[in-house]
C-alpha cells in the first residue's frame, strides 16, 4: 500500500439495490500494473468498478485515487450513430483535453473506418471504437467492465496490445473479464469478499 499507487482500495464495501454485495475489498495498483477481477455473474464486479469510477458511493472503507485519474468503460460505449467514427472520438478527445485521435484510431485498427458513420459499424467495430476512447482520455487508470464482449480474436489481441502499451507508459488497469488476455496481470477473485447478508433485527435494520 505505498503512496505512489495510482489506485488504492481499503476495506471497501459496496451495495447494489439496497443489498450489500462486497465487503472488505482491499488492493492497490501501481503504475504499470494491471488487476483482473474474477468472479461469477452477480459477484459485484460491475458494482465495484462503478464505485471506482465514482458513479456510486461506497458503504464503508475508502477508494483513494485522483478523481481525474480514472477512465471508465462500461457495457455501453456511448457512441452516437449519426456521427462518424472520427467525430465520436474527437468529441471525447476534446472533452478530456487531449485532441489527438490518430494513436487511438491506429491502436484499434479504425483508421480505414474513420469517416464512416458509427451506426454503420458492426457490434465488434463499435466495441473497438468504445475502447479506443480510453486512449484519448489520457488518464492513467483504466477501469474496464467486460471490455472484450463482442470482440473477435484479432480484436482481443489489439485490445491486449493496447492495455500492454498503456502499462508500459506508466498506466494501470483494473478490469472485469472472463477470458485470458495474455497480459501480465494479478487476479483478484471477488467470491472471497461476498458480503454477509444483514441479520434480521429491529425496525432500523432497513436503514443503515
Amino acid at each position: 500500500m505505498s503512496g505512489d499507487g495510482l489506485l488504492t482500495l481499503r476495506d471497501v464495501a459496496v451495495a447494489r439495490g439496497g443489498l450489500p454485495v462486497l465487503a472488505g475489498v482491499s488492493f492497490a495498483i501501481a503504475p504499470g500494473e494491471a488487476l483482473v477481477l474474477r468472479g461469477p455473474n452477480g459477484s459485484g464486479k460491475t458494482t465495484l468498478l462503478r464505485a471506482i469510477a465514482g458513479l456510486q458511493p461506497v458503504d464503508a472503507g475508502a477508494i483513494e485515487a485522483d478523481p481525474d485519474a480514472i477512465a471508465y468503460a462500461a457495457h455501453a460505449d456511448g457512441i452516437k450513430g449519426t456521427l462518424t467514427v472520427a467525430e465520436n472520438l474527437s468529441f471525447w478527445a476534446g472533452l478530456f483535453g487531449t485532441d489527438d485521435i490518430s494513436r487511438a484510431l491506429s491502436a484499434f485498427n479504425l483508421v480505414d473506418l474513420a469517416d464512416r458513420p458509427a451506426q454503420a459499424l458492426s457490434a465488434g467495430q463499435k466495441r473497438r471504437l468504445g475502447l479506443s476512447r480510453l486512449i484519448v482520455t489520457g488518464r492513467p487508470v483504466w477501469a474496464l467492465d467486460e471490455p472484450t464482449v463482442s470482440l473477435d480474436r484479432a480484436s482481443v489481441g489489439l485490445f491486449a496490445d493496447a492495455v500492454r502499451g498503456h502499462m508500459e507508459m506508466g498506466g494501470a488497469a483494473v478490469m472485469a473479464t472472463h477470458i485470458d488476455l495474455g497480459i501480465d496481470a494479478r487476479e483478484l477473485d471477488l467470491t472471497g469478499y461476498r458480503a454477509a447478508l444483514p441479520t434480521s433485527g429491529a425496525f432500523d435494520e432497513a436503514f443503515q
Binding site: 469510477a53 458513479l55 457495457h75 455501453a76 456511448g78 471525447w92 472533452l95 483535453g97
Partner: peptide
C-alpha cells in the same frame, strides 16, 4: 438518448 447509449455515465466520469 445519452442515458440509453451509455454516454451519460461516461460524461459523468469526464472532466466536465
Amino acid at each position: 438518448t445519452d442515458h440509453e447509449d451509455g454516454s451519460l455515465e461516461l460524461l459523468a466520469t469526464s472532466p466536465v
